[in-house]
Simulated assay, not measured.
Amino acid sequence: MNLKKEQIIKSKLGLLLKLLLITLAIFKIAEFIIGNKKESRLNSKRRNEQKVTLDSTKIKEGDDDGVPYVDSLSGKEKAKDNPIPNTASVYIFDDNGLDVRISRLVGDLFFKEYALKGIPKGFSKEELLLGNLETSANTELICVGKISYSYFSNSRGGTSCAVSLYFDAYNKTTGERMKSYSKSMDRTGVAVGDNKEGAKHNALKRIGF
């Protein structure tokens, strides 16, 4: 083999090697981009599944604006899934609708072993109070109850507030009422003078809030 032919062969082999290296680099870059996209989607899914903390704002039942919720699915759609283990959602209603602040306090005080979830859109106050959990969040435990307040002047010239709170806890999977978690209580708080908020605050403190 003469020198010229040998140089041509070496040149072709060098070019072929460069093409192989470029192809390998393109393959690695594509693999990296696809992997990043999958990781991004996975992280997005995880963020969507994170706990939604209950708001401190009182929201009327049926008012979607600003209502914290687990996701955009309705309660009926969520009922098709298995409830999330070790989670709870709490619905405490007063005369104006859902009291989110009291719901959160009840959850923090009585259901410490459960991770609290937010409130889904489309919940039905009437159905929940009847023990129909179809519109509730997709949590293992569902707590539903009512709170009411009454005020009166006491013998010392101050203001008293009587708070009545009751709630029932249910297992979402079976629909069974959980007696050990269901409670009913009445507490009275007293404040000096015409101070309804103070009396109410003291009554709620006697519950443990």
Results as ranks from 00 to 15, higher is better:
L3I: 13
E6M: 15
K12I: 13
G14V: 14
L16F: 10
L16R: 06
L17N: 04
K18S: 09
L19G: 12
L24K: 07
L24P: 07
A25W: 06
I26L: 12
I26R: 05
F27R: 08
A30C: 11
I33W: 02
I34W: 09
N36F: 14
N36M: 13
E39K: 10
E39N: 07
R41Y: 13
R41F: 15
N43D: 10
S44H: 08
K45L: 10
K45T: 13
R46I: 15
R46L: 15
R46D: 10
R46F: 15
N48F: 10
N48I: 13
Q50A: 15
V52A: 00
T53R: 02
T53C: 08
T53L: 12
L54D: 02
L54T: 11
S56V: 11
I59G: 03
G62I: 14
G66E: 00
V67T: 14
V67H: 01
D71C: 02
L73W: 00
G75W: 01
G75P: 03
K78N: 05
P85A: 04
N86D: 07
A88C: 07
S89T: 11
I92E: 06
D94P: 04
L98F: 02
L98M: 00
L98T: 08
D99K: 07
R101Y: 15
R101Q: 10
S103D: 00
R104V: 14
G107V: 14
E113H: 08
L116K: 03
K117Q: 10
K121H: 08
G122I: 11
S124K: 05
L128G: 13
L129W: 00
L130V: 15
L130W: 15
G131R: 03
G131M: 02
L133K: 00
T135A: 01
S136E: 06
S136Y: 06
E140H: 01
E140D: 09
L141R: 07
V144A: 01
V144K: 02
G145F: 01
G145L: 02
K146L: 12
S148L: 06
Y149N: 06
Y149R: 01
Y151Q: 03
Y151A: 02
Y151W: 09
Y151F: 13
F152E: 11
S153P: 07
S153G: 12
R156S: 14
G157D: 00
G158L: 08
T159E: 04
C161H: 00
C161V: 01
A162D: 04
A162V: 15
A162P: 03
V163H: 04
V163L: 05
S164L: 07
L165F: 00
L165G: 03
F167G: 03
F167Y: 03
Y170C: 06
Y170M: 04
N171D: 13
K172G: 05
T173M: 10
G175D: 02
M178F: 14
K179D: 10
S180M: 09
S182L: 01
S184W: 07
M185Y: 03
M185R: 02
D186G: 13
V190S: 11
V190M: 09
A191L: 04
A191K: 06
G193I: 13
D194M: 07
N195P: 00
K196H: 03
E197W: 01
G198I: 15
A199I: 12
A203F: 13
K205N: 09
R206N: 07
R206Y: 04
I207C: 05
F209A: 08
